[in-house]
């Protein structure tokens, strides 16, 4: 049975293994070069007063590795590819070719057949996605230190989350294949589900995994205030800023319209916007998730996707148990 699983899915294993290896090799090559920009580690180049060497290094990082963000956004489909290419044919290919009737009338009961396949291919999925995210986590290390790890090009590709995404894609493709009985449509449906859930979770759920922290203070004369956005610092440039704004002296929130009106009034009076706000006792606030919550958030995100994967696989198991094929 193990041999059969290997023999049936070795093409996918080779192809996906090659994909991850190619990505890994490429990131290793460009990553070594990037890491060499910061001989003492990128940690020395944070803060306001930068040494000459650090300024050069950061400029070169932006010039020579500016494509990284776009590339990494593209890579966020790799966990889908890994999971879906294992999952889509798992059941669907047997149903398509009629071979289910052969496979499930040998002496291996279909539930064991399913258990072995899900176990082996699920493990392969998690393993490949894990290797993939490990490589990216290493590659992004200087950027993480400089820019934080909560951006879409970081959080979605580092740590545990990619394995969770891949498992979800695996389960979605397997379930779609078991319902649709065709590999290719299953792949398409899984892609739709993957994108929808990923966008929904990242945009809607993730900011709320834990209650945000809130800082409130009087606008100071020299603050870099903008209309509607105080550009207030949380004290750590690696924190994830969720929202910011102004309240009047009584603590009532100021709308964008209010602050725009104040901005024009300040211009008319010929004073700096921040000074104008300061004079009127306007307060600025920021809500954020502290940088040290990264791993907690990773854990929650992974649990969500792994949980969804488990639910979808339970659906497959249920269909198998009912013997409806």
């Amino acid at each position: 049975m193990t041999w059969l699983t290997w023999r049936q899915h070795r093409a996918e294993m080779y192809a996906l293994g090659l994909l991850v290896a190619a990505i890994g090799a490429f990131l290793l090559a460009v990553g070594l070069q990037m890491h060499s920009l910061f001989p003492g580690g990128a940690g020395q180049c944070t803060g306001i007063d930068l040494t000459e060497a650090c300024s050069t290094a950061i400029r070169r990082l932006n010039d020579e590795h500016g494509y990284a963000s776009k590339m990494l956004n593209l890579f966020s489909l790799v966990p889908f590819l890994i999971g879906a290419f294992f999952g889509a044919p798992l059941v669907a290919r047997e149903l398509e070719a009629g071979t289910w009737q052969f496979a499930w009338t040998q002496s291996v009961p279909r539930m064991r057949w399913l258990a072995v396949k899900l176990g082996a291919l699920g493990f392969a999925t998690a393993l490949l996605a894990g290797v993939f995210s490990a490589v990216i986590t290493w590659y992004r290390q200087p950027m993480d230190v400089l820019d934080g790890r909560f951006g879409a090009d970081a959080f979605d590709l580092e740590g545990l989350a990619p394995a969770g995404y891949a498992l979800f894609a695996f389960a979605a493709a397997t379930a779609a294949g078991a319902v649709l009985r065709r590999s290719l449509p299953a792949l398409a449906v899984a892609l739709g589900a993957f994108l929808a859930v990923r966008v929904l979770v990242a945009g809607w759920l993730r900011p709320n995994y834990q209650d945000t922290q809130r800082l409130v203070e009087l606008v100071a004369v020299g603050d870099p205030a903008d209309v509607g956005n105080p550009r207030m610092s949380t004290g750590n440039h690696l924190d994830w800023t969720i929202a910011s704004g102004y309240t009047d002296s009584a603590g009532r929130p100021l709308s964008l319209y209010d602050s725009a009106a104040m901005y024009s009034a300040a211009e008319k009076e010929g004073v700096k916007f921040s000074a104008y706000l300061h004079e009127r006792g306007v307060q600025q606030w920021v809500e954020f998730q502290p940088a040290e919550r990264f791993w907690t958030f990773q854990l929650v995100e992974t649990t969500i996707f792994a949980g969804l994967a488990a639910a979808l696989l339970a659906l497959v198991v249920w269909r198998f148990r009912r013997r409806v094929f």
Binding site: R7, Q8, A97, G98, T99, Q101, F102, W104, T105, Q106, S107, V108, P109, R110, M111, R323
Partner: peptide
Amino acid sequence: TDTPQALSRIGFLAQDHPLYKHF
């Protein structure tokens, strides 16, 4: 049922004799 014992006593040849074509 589909227990190993029951399955091992039955041979089944489905319509169009499906086989893994790449094997």
